[in-house]
Design a protein around this nucleic acid. Structure first.
Lengths: 352, 352
DNA sequence: GAAGTGGATGTAAACGTTTACATTCGCAGG
DNA sequence: CCTGCGAATGTAAACGTTTACATCCACTTC
């Protein structure tokens, strides 16, 4: 039915080895022979069979990617970074996402065995000790924005706490004293760290005249929109709100607008992530920039490095620095976006 | 090095066939034996090797996805729809994107041979006759928003022209007579069809007192932002602008705001796609809703159907209906979003 | 007691490649 | 002429599974 290397070999009157050599290009083949093989292959619509190839070469040229969700621009940017970097090195992506529980993740990883050379795993609320017990050893893995104890795995993430701290300090510096936060989902590591950064900045102040107000959220626009009413219900209401991600900040802007509240006039708003759309909303959103696509790209780089070195983990933890991006929504900038301030120094990598 | 089915068989004191049966679950195995095998497998961290499996079963349980780009919420929604539907049937996704030219697409498809059971191909500006010549026959393919002549392939897309027509009529009904369009990229089929729908609605009018103004664009927010100045340069300037997608509409809103133009007061704005963020921008964006995630999901359904039926193409062309979503940016709705009107009847499928 | 039945297991042949090793051949160096 | 060599090609053994077929065994049925 399907045409194999044997058929090509027969019609080109050479051995299968020669056909293989033509397609891998790793051994010398006489020009005349190569041409003949290519012509026959083209005529027969022959293409080498990937699975067969992987089986013997022990390389799939594929990177597995497990994401928690795919909603919104954040994930689309992460994937974009991953795809572009992977393709640059000739790798494909095997993508899976939106796993409701840990057994689903396990099942997915299981079906990926023998189909990927390594794994990029983003699961901000999962446990790593468990992973270690389940996994086929020697499968290179990079954890993206990993939770808590990351065990023996390589890790890459962003400085959530530092970014949140810097943003809160910025709001304080603008004179705000009642600063609310719209939290991320329970159990999400990124969300927890951003919350900590916010608390840290508030308690840090000598005067002690600041007040922190917490509102529940889940990283969706809808949650941000709902938060608007809750924040106004508070008397006296906060003068600034820090949403734990941009999606919620944008929802919050919409919610406040519908309630007739001027931003930044009556309430200042800030977000986190600096997704591409942030600068186009109205008013343009002050946010904490994280290099989303670069995060994905770096993860691939680290993973491929591990793949090429035989999968011996290096236990390297890398944290990408964030950057404060001030736009109109916090009331500090007039219109043009500020050049931005780096928080926490340059990109850092530390072993332990 | 890596643990194989043989090793498990040896340690569990059974044949490889029995181990295989335990893992595929398709043949009866005594409970006692099954348990013993499972235990050994777990202890050894054994997982079946995907490539080896695919080689003999002739199934990869994977769908290949080729997208032109990954920028913005549109693609993120398409992928989300695809992922969710595929996973529901136990399929993985092999993703590739951002191909600058046709030879890259060809190379990518080549490396996918033997790694996927079928292909979802979105390439609004590519030619189908060419595809037919290159492809390994019997590889099921579904074309997403395909261009021009789709040859013998299955197709799924949206009613771009009808949606654009309906939107333009809506703007006319609101009393606008000078209606500009911000076009999509040259050569992009979706963009061309939307342009046609807009032109059609304008020339259709008996009075003939309407004026259409075209501004170049490329589906990015930046292009929309740049379009703002161009539109105002026109004297007398248009009273309504139809952006060929939401990303540009959102950029346009930002651009007009920076120029001090009130929307919808001075100029009405409308978009196309109704990406999730559209209802959260300010003012909320009037748009043509297309069921983006569903588009991806349907593509997967059609593809899997073809896969299961042996890859004999059905030459079915399916067009999803659009829906007018009226929000504040066009000046018609006060605040709440309207229920929406369906354009062009229900989902249609027609063979030829 | 012979014959048939069906469940549990084993044996071995695929699946479509790559690649180590063997072979062939022409040719240079002695 | 013999030897050695390197380039081009062929032969066949992997790679890790699934599955058709065979085997064995404990029953049931007549």
């Amino acid at each position: 039915m399907t045409v194999t290397i044997r058929e090509v070999a027969k019609q080109a009157k050479v051995s299968v080895a020669t056909v293989s050599r033509v397609f891998t290009g790793k051994s010398p083949v006489r020009d005349e022979t190569r041409l003949r093989v290519r012509q026959v292959a083209e005529r027969l619509h022959y293409l080498p069979h990937g699975a067969a190839r992987s089986l013997i070469t022990r390389r799939t040229m594929t990177v597995g990617v497990l994401l928690p969700d795919l909603h919104g621009e954040f994930f689309s940017e992460v994937i974009r970074g991953i795809v572009l970097r992977a393709r640059k090195s000739g790798y494909h992506l095997l993508v899976s996402s939106s796993h409701s529980d840990i057994s689903e993740i396990e099942a997915t990883i299981a079906t990926m065995r023998g189909r990927v050379d390594g794994l990029i795993l983003m699961s901000p609320d999962m446990d790593a000790g468990w992973l270690h017990a389940k996994l086929p050893a020697r499968l290179p893995i990079v954890l993206l924005n990993a939770a808590g104890d990351t065990g023996p795995f390589e890790t890459i993430g962003v400085d959530n706490r530092g970014g949140a701290f810097a943003m809160t300090r910025h709001l304080l510096a603008l004179g705000h004293r009642r600063i609310a936060i719209v939290r991320g989902p329970e159990g999400n590591r990124d969300a927890a760290e951003r919350l900590r950064g916010w608390r840290w900045a508030l308690q840090d102040l000598p005067g002690g005249d600041t007040e922190g107000i917490e509102v529940a959220g889940d990283f969706t626009e809808a949650a941000g929109e709902r938060a608007a009413a809750k924040i106004l219900a508070r008397e006296p209401h906060p003068t600034a709100v820090f949403a734990a991600n941009d999606a919620m900040a944008i929802g919050l802007l919409a919610g406040l607008r519908d309630l007739g509240v001027r931003v930044p006039g009556e309430i200042a708003v800030a977000g986190f992530d600096d997704i591409p759309i942030a600068r186009y909303v109205s008013p343009p959103l002050t946010s904490v920039r994280i290099p989303i696509a670069e995060l994905g790209a770096r993860a691939v780089e680290r993973l491929l490095h591990a793949v090429e070195n035989g999968g011996e983990p290096e236990r390297t933890h890398e944290t990408l620095a964030t950057e404060l991006v001030v736009r109109a929504s916090c009331g500090a900038a007039s219109s043009a976006s500020s050049p931005g301030r780096r928080n926490g120094g340059p990109i850092t990598a530390n072993r332990r």
